[in-house]
Amino acid sequence: MGELAVSNRVGDELVAIGLGSCIGLAMIDRDAGVAGLAHVVLPESQGKPGPAPKFADLAVPDMIGKMVAAGANKRRLEALMIGGARMFSVGASMDIGSRNADAVRSALRDAGISLKTEEVGGNRGRTARIIIGFDVSSQLAGGERTSLMSLTAGPGSVGRREAAKAV
């Protein structure tokens, strides 16, 4: 929760397991082979301290900086978001999941980054997974993986290695 991982090594796997109301925000530069995954917990930082990836408004600029540092070109960045469910139908108070999704959309729009795909809402948890050089996928609790974006543009090999976690 509130963590971020970026990688440019083919075969690296970035995973956020068990996203409920949280959002797995993926950012990709397909040409440069750079990808990042942030585990966003809340929509706004409201000036409070804490790790930037925890809040949608801070996560997006923070992630862009780290993607560029890893060799991505900001103009080529594409985003996907996964999660934002409402786990408790008559929840304790508010629907954090949909507020998180709205905040991520708005932060991406402000940063000029195109949101290619979203797998959000509903009442089941998801796992977000990026395998560099292979794909970005979403997996519902107890379900199969659904591939959302292929990353096999280049002639990369498809090795699998557990290298980074963004749970």
Partner: peptide
């Protein structure tokens, strides 16, 4: 559901802006 989805969603509400 997944333990992570359940616990994290509740912690997002109870911990909120604390860390």
């Amino acid at each position: 559901d997944m333990l992570g989805s359940i616990v994290a969603s509740l912690l997002a509400e109870t911990v909120g802006h604390g860390d």
